[in-house]
Write a protein that binds this DNA or RNA. Structure first.
Lengths: 402, 402
DNA sequence: CGCTATTTGTTCAGTGGTTGAATTATTTGA
DNA sequence: TCAAATAATTCAACCACTGAACAAATAGCG
């Protein structure tokens, strides 16, 4: 560790406190909270103010005796993150500022399966350009972009396999034109990172949820089933970045064959297609989200086939989730993606399996809840991950060439 | 971060490099490796030498031109860790020095099930006293102790549940007399930490194995089945410290009932008792380790019942492990505890299930290997965790009152 | 044997960043 | 109007790292 690292570290510590506080903290409060002296905090805050990462809040009318403190808030006219998402039946773009507010959000519904990767990415680039224009108009500077894809992605942004999209070895950053205005690498990170949809959705849930360092499993039920694993407040990506393939956890070793080559995988019981088929909606040939909405309506109306399909799917999901909870000792499971609207019916059987199968459930219960973020959660999560990177290491942003 | 933290950090960085190096590094090499100047490294090393954490190695006869370098090694007469273990059929104590060498090791075989916790811990205290005397004779200073228990342990060292030992809510630190000579808290950590046997065994494997930041699953097959999860070179304990309960992952949701209340848990297929019963060794009433040895002999001799039992157990284990590997994207699975001697027969079916069920196995193979540490791996791992704590934060040790 | 090249480790003035106390700024309450 | 109280800044001191110069120790070579 060099000498200058000290200042870098303290920039991150102070900025992190400002971000985590529930009300704008003063310099004095930051000093008390961090253990640094007020002199040091003042110097650090001066750097942050100069770099447009924080701003002084409007003075609050009533405080008490003494010189009034000036609260510090995250800047809403500084850097922002661009979040993009390609999924089977929609494209999305959004912009999130440092404070975590969604400042722009577009969702474009269309079945992407018959479309070539090149064409799909061209359409996405259009959405991105519009988002960028919007951001510039509001005085924001895009600091980077994250693209969510429903598949396995390697470090270079190559989409190795996106089965439900029919993609294989698609070099996304090159095709997306590397997002012309984002060409500068900030702090060694490329301007566009491509990541798995489930990972980014879990990140979104992490930052939308309560503060702290939670551990939870975010299950994303789309055509496939992905999971994002958050451990101690950090996304766990696995040795090669391919963690979370929960869809192929074996439920019955001799169950129906799965396209992965195994038998009785979770996906054959709880994948979107399996649920819809069991509910008698298979032939309808509706777009996936419409079909899910329809299923929720039927279940709400008490349709027996729908209720039975959801109960069975929930039980299979519960078996898999119970194994994960036993293994990782998680206290929360989040139902996201296509499962979020179905949560009222999936939750009871999942909870039942957990309480049957998790050793420690008796002492400390496991929470199962729908995702806090709605549509295109992965896009929002991706945009959030961009600004989080700046919050975690502000020195890199402050030292940028521009 | 205070100003002094800089030095604290650099002490840890330099000490870590010395520990990780495969041959004693010189101050100059450390400077080149860390990016610090030689002046700084010299100052840091002086502190470490004064604190008896490192020592200068014997000068090597041949070097080349220039002033000969003086290699630095971890001290073997400084702090050491005491590792203790209570299991169903043995007690163990060992002492590990900073360099990771086992300087003392005693295993005392006895069936602990009919013995009261108080009596068992009294016997263990005796082993610990002997280990301590040995350590003192060799010039070592015990810096702390870790006790491995086959059960769920909370932060305060209370054993909530050790089913195979028949323990429930046993306040171990109080009963062990808190190990009289270890009463000082070093750096906020109590002198005795109690932890799960599988966790400590995994830690032992982590440090005995190759350097780096590996991610692996260490499966410990004793009477119950526990697993220690190492992610990015760190043990993952879970939200409440109860991770790794792999024994109750569901294999067949409608399989035989398990004492946990669920059905078809892994333990009902691959627990020690289940394997022995399937091999026709159930009635023999041998101590567990003897029975395992006998089973290995039978399998080695080609006994059909033994081979069939092991193949079936390995398949069930493989199903569970495949799910874990899919979920966490691990590249290594270690067979430890009672599984280590059976690894030649368990490995093929486990590998077969992994290659059938793990999506990414085709691109990057998963290694399945027996544990590197032998008997009482958890005791060695626990002792190692004590000295690792010092290596990770040497300033705390250097600043100790004594 | 003496000289040079070479590499290691130490010394020392210089610098960046934190520290602690004193000082200034701004408000409330008597 | 003034004292009390709290917030923020200023400034000399200090700590740890930096860079360059220097001393130490060895190999190679004539």
């Amino acid at each position: 560790m060099r000498q200058g690292s000290l200042r870098e570290w303290n920039l991150a510590v102070v900025l992190g406190r400002i971000a985590a506080a529930d009300r704008p903290p003063s310099r004095a409060e930051l000093a008390a909270g961090t253990g640094l002296t007020r002199a040091t905090v003042s110097a650090v805050v001066e750097d942050l103010l100069a770099g447009r990462l924080v701003a002084e809040a409007e003075p609050t009318p009533r405080t008490g005796a003494g010189r009034p403190s000036r609260g510090l808030v995250l800047a809403t006219d500084g850097p922002a993150g661009l979040g993009l998402e390609i999924n089977v039946d929609y494209l999305a773009a959004c912009v999130v500022d440092l404070a975590g507010r969604v400042r722009h959000h577009t969702v474009h519904r269309a079945d992407l399966r018959p479309v070539s990767p090149t064409e799909a990415l061209a359409r996405l680039a259009e959405l991105a350009a519009r988002a960028r224009a919007d951001a510039t108009r509001e005085g924001l500077t895009l600091a980077g972009a994250a693209l969510a894809v429903p598949g396995l992605v390697d470090d270079a942004g190559l989409v190795r396999l996106a089965p439900n999209l029919g993609w294989r070895d698609v070099p996304v950053p090159a095709l997306l034109g590397a997002g012309a205005p984002l060409t500068a690498h900030v702090d060694g990170v490329p301007p566009l990172v491509v990541d798995n949809e489930a990972n980014l959705a879990a990140l979104g849930e992490l930052h939308a949820g309560p503060a702290g360092r939670p551990s939870f499993l975010h299950v994303s039920g789309e055509v496939g089933i992905g999971a994002g694993i958050v451990l101690d407040g950090a996304l766990f990506r696995g040795a090669r970045g391919w963690s979370g393939e929960i869809g192929h956890i074996p439920i019955r070793p001799d169950g129906p064959p799965c396209r992965c080559g195994g038998r009785g995988c979770l996906e054959t019981y709880t994948g979107q297609e399996a649920i819809l088929a069991a509910a008698g909606l298979a032939g309808a040939d509706l777009p996936a989200d419409t079909a899910t909405t329809r299923l929720a309506e039927l279940a709400g109306a008490g349709d027996p086939a729908a209720l039975r399909a959801l109960a069975e799917a929930g039980t299979a999901l519960g078996v898999a989730v119970a194994g994960v909870v036993n293994l990782l000792d998680l206290d929360t499971v989040v139902l996201g993606g296509g499962y979020a609207p179905l949560a009222p019916w999936l939750r009871p059987p999942v909870l039942a399996e957990i309480s049957r199968r998790v050793l420690t459930a008796a002492w400390s219960p496991v929470t199962v809840r729908p995702a806090a973020l709605g549509a295109a959660a992965a896009a929002v999560g991706g945009a959030g991950s961009v600004v989080r990177r700046i919050l975690a290491r502000p020195a890199g942003w402050l030292a940028r060439p521009a």
